[in-house]
Design a protein around this nucleic acid. Sequence first.
DNA 1: TAAGGTATGTTAATCGGTTAACTTGAGTCT
DNA 2: AGACTCAAGTTAACCGATTAACATACCTTA
Lengths: 342, 342
Amino acid sequence: MPAPKLSDIARRAGVSVAAVSIALNNKDTTRVSPAKRELIRQIAQDLGYSPNELAKALAERRTRLLGLMVPMKDPIFFNQFIAQALSGIQASVMRRGYNLLIYSPSGRPGRATRDQILESKFTDGLIFINTRSCTTRDINDTVHGLDAAGIRFTMINSYYGRAAINYVGVDDAALAEAAVRYLVDHGHRRIAFLSSLPTLPTHIHLLQGLRRAMAEAGLELKAEHIGCCNYDQTQAFTILDQWFLRRKDRPTAIFTADDSLLVHMYDYVDARHLSIPGDVAILARANSANAGGLRPRPTAFFIPTFEMGQLAADILIDSIELPEQKPQRILLPFTFFQGTTA
Amino acid sequence: MPAPKLSDIARRAGVSVAAVSIALNNKDTTRVSPAKRELIRQIAQDLGYSPNELAKALAERRTRLLGLMVPMKDPIFFNQFIAQALSGIQASVMRRGYNLLIYSPSGRPGRATRDQILESKFTDGLIFINTRSCTTRDINDTVHGLDAAGIRFTMINSYYGRAAINYVGVDDAALAEAAVRYLVDHGHRRIAFLSSLPTLPTHIHLLQGLRRAMAEAGLELKAEHIGCCNYDQTQAFTILDQWFLRRKDRPTAIFTADDSLLVHMYDYVDARHLSIPGDVAILARANSANAGGLRPRPTAFFIPTFEMGQLAADILIDSIELPEQKPQRILLPFTFFQGTTA
DNA sequence: TAAGGTATGTTAATCGGTTAACTTGAGTCT
DNA sequence: AGACTCAAGTTAACCGATTAACATACCTTA
């Protein structure tokens, strides 16, 4: 038999559908007598009734669903940054009585995506993460489009515009400064920066910090000591060979911008039979859970990815439930771990 | 202004709402003249119309949403098995025009969960993964409840009952047999088995295979050489100390059941200054993506987690879209990787 | 005793779509 | 000319809830 609905209960109880709805939802306690309320409850229970959330959402104009926009490369959740943020998001979402819907538009989440999502009305709000291959322009367009449409959203570590939006990130510039200071304190003068994509907000912020701190130390970050490998091991090796196969000017320390680069560094060091930190010191910006299994243990600045996810969901839900809430911009602190690589 | 709806288009075009619905959905090409169809399209475009998917789903009794049931421990997606399966699921789901909803009931996905989900009607089908802390009874109850309610679902590597259900897994018994043969071929006679939870289907299947293959080789798997550490490093160390701190009967090889155990082994070997494979050989059942970063590279049987996710979603969608589809039971092959640990 | 308040419901509109069944007029066939 | 077919829409029921507005009886209170 089909699932019972409000009208089934109403018929059995000899009351109107409205009465059943009111009774079961605990609204307006004065509208249904305690006796009838109890009767209705009992019948609902006997029938194993549970509401059709779809109909409910349509009537209430609210789904209690959050959408996570993550640009699709097939094995997307292999990315520890995303996996951990997702865990944090899911934790908050559960705690606040919401659920999470995964949207992964193929291609860039620019105009098409915005439209696709604006349209659906399936989610009460959106979280953007790792909009890695988006141009600044795409992101700005998206931000403005969503704002104009009154859609609530939060960006995680992926926006460098100036609009007042919900934002959760880590202070990458400060992190890079701390990294340089650490390396300089340990005697390094030739420092290279290995990154994934030059368009990433993280890349840009790190670079700002690096330049500032190196200038302070009277050093210079040479253009040829900045490498981007586009998440590709082969490209990483090419860059590293350029740095290490010539005798002079060889960097003594490398600062890596994300987890995948750290792994590439380890692979490279293996392949070329270099020693860490003898031949090259490695200082990483990394996710703790991911770096935990690596040997040797990397010296690293860990970013609180899980917490970023949690906060992102929390401030998004705040802004959904409290209409007058101002957008929040949150930068989380990073932590230092002393490994054996620098 | 509020989002445009069908009725707005209908008014502007001077036709009925039904006509607009038909025209925009390309149904029944003979019902609306090409001219009117074009007019309606144009107006929809001008207004930036996009359908309210909620209303659509309610009317069509279909959401094109799949639910993923994953038991919630807070940092759930740190688990590479889940993260990879999720990636596979998401890939298939996208390809087939669906979206994914994450359900993570706190507590065991037994009766309460089943009810919670049956009720919602938000998803067209469910995927169960890693129902690690469920009793056999809970799982059987769930399976029967879902079947009775006509809910479509697939289980990934987490069912040992005999009901005909959609199931995707790996042939763990065969994997364990292959592991034993490899170790025996390399001269090992005292083999220990390190696992996480004795109630896991994987644990049970591996154990079957181990016993069978060792019997074939004229060996015995001693009860004290089977250890379960409940995902806890301290417990793992306790077990390993029992195995290694006494002189005789010390195992020469350890077969590990999942990724976390492999990491614990590495940590242990570090802590006790043992050498691999000199003091102890390690042969792992692992997820390739996760084990990829480990040094030394583990000798391992890799399970195709991503593909399992893909297939799970595919057969689920098949069974949703083809009502007469029989449940499919799929066991995927594993692959061997020759590392340096065994 | 008339007015007003309170408890307990019901009616009907609404959310934004889909779709079976009906209508109407024009063309076709015999 | 009458019966039949087909194109092109329209009407209205329906999906399964929520909720504002209205109705009724009973109880106070001045």
